[in-house]
Design a protein around this nucleic acid. Structure first.
Length: 198
DNA sequence: AAGAAGATCAAT
DNA sequence: TTGATCTTCTTG
């Protein structure tokens, strides 16, 4: 398996979000296939943190592509993103990791999730972060590491489905949520399946 | 100083 | 459908 290097994240958020589908997140003793992501654009996207929050804009400006952007949502759930920015400095933003298909370390995931769960270990951004033990300590860390934290390239071109993003109140219409077609670990089924190539 | 909204989740 | 829970940003 080939690790994803920084260059992978040096492009626009939408293409990076779909490009991550089928790749594997390796994190300590856990690993999972990325089956659902969302793209957030730093410019012109009302749903992106950068639209309202100066701190988010500062984060984008002062970190390289491939940096983890982790924040607490609704006072209870950590959500994990990857900072994405093309080499020209246009087209910056985030890719939210929304669901994984667990591959290794399932017992640790279950222990951290703290329930007798058969499924739903990583099906949802909050669940995923909890299962992998991702929290505020990891905000700003580098996800392009060769070691035990990073992504591995997908073995084959997967079939990807696109649809509107979930849980937002603004910019609802943009089809910037991507999922692996037919995968049962997606947090919610896509509404009207729009098929995509890569 | 106080309020509102928010990229969610699990229980009712 | 609702409550939990807290950080960031806005308003007075």
């Amino acid at each position: 398996m080939t690790p994803l290097t920084r260059a992978f994240f040096e492009r626009d958020p939408v293409s990076c979000a779909s490009g991550l589908i089928g790749c594997t997140l390796v994190w300590g003793g856990c690993a999972g296939i990325v089956v659902e992501t969302e793209a957030y654009a730093a410019e012109g996207d009302e749903a992106c943190h950068t639209f309202r929050r100066p701190a988010a804009r500062r984060f984008v400006a002062s970190n390289p592509a491939g940096t983890a952007y982790v924040y607490l949502n609704y006072g209870m759930h950590w959500l994990a993103n990857v900072l994405v920015k093309d080499t020209l400095g246009d087209s910056e933003g985030f890719v939210l990791l929304r669901a994984l298909e667990p591959v290794t370390g399932l017992h640790w995931m279950r222990r951290r999730r703290g329930r007798d769960l058969v499924g739903d270990l990583c099906s949802g951004p909050g669940r995923l972060a909890q299962a992998f033990g991702i929290d505020g300590r990891h905000h700003g860390t580098d996800l392009c590491l060769r070691g035990d934290r990073g992504f591995q390239a997908r073995p084959v071109e997967p079939e990807i489905v696109a649809g509107p993003r979930i849980g937002i109140s603004l910019a609802k219409r943009l089809p910037w949520r991507f999922s692996l077609a037919g995968n049962s670990h997606v947090s919610r089924p896509q509404p009207q399946a729009v098929r995509r190539g890569k």
